[in-house]
């Protein structure tokens, strides 16, 4: 079949003239600029990903060098003394992430439920905005804030005349917990909102109470997504250094008492990397390897949980 265009009526063709045929040089120019710009976008993507590989490469190569049982079972030795490990820092990080979860998860998940189930009003809008603000506040300011509400007053109340400031894992956990809230809250809200309305209506029609249907049925259906949010939040705070500098501070000793100052992986990496000692620098790479591995595993788990989600 040979499709032919209907001849334009003479009235239209007087006013609407067909475009002049495009010169081949203009066509070439357009084609070339099309390909050049597409190529540049691809190049930008490659440039964006190179640093990732460089960072992961160095962290792995330099980190593997100091991976031995002692790294996980010994505390750091004084500068200049080879050997030793980051046991105290790994334990400290786990402890403070645990404390942070005790604060961040209830507030984040229940707050998120409020936003999705009851928050279609002005108050919900304000809370959402506050969550975004909290998410955007630099982590070091959270550290300064927690220092002034949870470290300084406690020190003033308890210390003798010239004692040092009493930094504590409690304060570190509080700072990290505050940082967790926005991520957990917004993911919970978004995921819970995806649960079909019919599930809620079904539960209520069977005579269930609102609180029970929300916690059991709605949250149960949204479980995978909420777990993703929680894992991502934990992955984010596990690597935070700045909020811990003035709250949990640092220590060279193993410590399980949350009211004492406590080492953490990020702070130990920072202090070991900035020390002039070569062996401490090497240990910092080891710490970074463990930290990045932890975060990668959490991120992959989070992705897996999302994939398994069936809301």
């Amino acid at each position: 079949m040979n499709p032919t265009l209907p001849a334009p009526s003479s009235a239209v063709s007087d006013r609407v003239r067909p475009l002049p045929p495009m010169s081949s040089s203009l066509m070439t120019k357009r084609r070339v600029s099309n390909n050049v710009m597409k190529g540049l976008c691809g190049l930008a993507t490659i440039l964006a990903i190179i640093p990732l590989f460089l960072v992961l490469y160095y962290v792995t190569i330099q980190g593997i060098k100091v991976m031995n049982p002692a790294f996980f079972t010994e505390v750091q030795r004084p500068a200049g003394d080879p050997g030793g490990g980051f046991k105290h820092a790994i334990v400290g990080t786990l402890m403070m992430v645990g404390l942070a979860s005790c604060i961040g998860l209830p507030v984040g998940i229940l707050g998120g439920i409020y936003l999705s189930e009851f928050g279609q009003n002005r108050f919900g809008f304000i809370v959402r905005f506050a969550t975004d603000v909290l998410n955007g506040i630099p982590s070091i300011i959270i550290g300064v804030f927690v220092y002034s509400i949870a470290v300084l007053p406690v020190s003033r109340a308890t210390r003798e005349w010239n004692d040092p400031i009493t930094f504590s894992a409690w304060a570190g956990g509080l700072a990290l917990g505050i940082m967790m809230i926005p991520t957990v809250m917004r993911t919970t809200e978004e995921i819970v909102r995806l649960v079909p309305q019919s599930l809620r209506e079904g539960a209520l029609a069977l005579g269930d109470t609102r609180w029970h249907s929300t916690l059991k049925i709605v949250l149960g259906a949204a479980k995978g997504g909420v777990i993703t949010g929680v894992l991502l939040a934990i992955a984010r705070i596990a690597g935070e250094t700045a909020p811990l500098l003035f709250t949990a501070a640092d220590s060279l000793y193993m410590n399980l008492n949350p009211s004492k100052q406590t080492a953490s992986l990020p702070v130990r990496i920072y202090l070991s990397a900035t020390s002039p000692d070569d062996h401490w620098n090497a240990l910092a790479w080891g710490g970074a390897f463990v930290l990045v591995a932890m975060i990668l595993i959490l991120s992959l788990l989070a992705r897996y949980a999302t994939r398994a989600r069936n809301v």
């Binding site: 960072v55 690597g239 935070e240 920072y270 790479w285 970074a288 930290l291 990045v292 975060i295």
Partner: peptide, 23 residues
Amino acid sequence: LSFMVELLAAVPSVVYGLWGRLV
């Protein structure tokens, strides 16, 4: 590719600092 770019955001700040300082 999107996952890799997201991963770039997941690497902690202190690790970039370590890499920046020593490499």
